[in-house]
């Protein structure tokens, strides 16, 4: 897939049926940002393949930090919209009535 083909289609679904939306295009540096399942992915023209190939490259690997608590949203993992790599956990802050999203992006 060429750079032009890639940015010509602002919305598509990947093979899992998940919506992939083109959000940002920098024509000057030939860089595009896609959004999929609540996460952003940057693609550079010299490395273009296809947005459906998005694998969690090392820079986007998720650090799943499970605090003391229980899984409160197991369904999200199974649903097509879920990324399958993040888990929503209720953290040990029930006193404050808060649930934390414990998935964090590694820099």
């Amino acid at each position: 897939m060429t750079w032009e083909e890639l940015i010509a289609e602002p919305r598509r679904r990947d093979e899992h049926g998940v919506l992939v939306v083109l959000e940002e295009v920098d024509h000057d540096t030939r860089t595009a940002v896609f959004r999929r399942a609540g996460e952003s992915f940057t693609v550079r023209a010299d490395k273009v393949t296809s947005p459906s190939d998005f694998k969690p490259a090392p820079e986007f690997a998720l650090e799943v930090k499970v605090l003391t608590g229980e899984i409160v949203d197991e369904d999200a993992e199974r649903s097509p919209a879920g990324s399958g790599r993040a888990r929503v956990v209720a953290a040990g802050v029930a006193a404050a009535g808060l649930a934390l999203l414990a998935a964090r992006r590694r820099r």
Partner: peptide
């Protein structure tokens, strides 16, 4: 004792 709220498993998960 600071027993955690039993109802939160239900209430916080919607």
């Amino acid at each position: 004792q600071p027993v955690r709220r039993r109802e939160d498993a239900r209430l916080l998960a919607g």
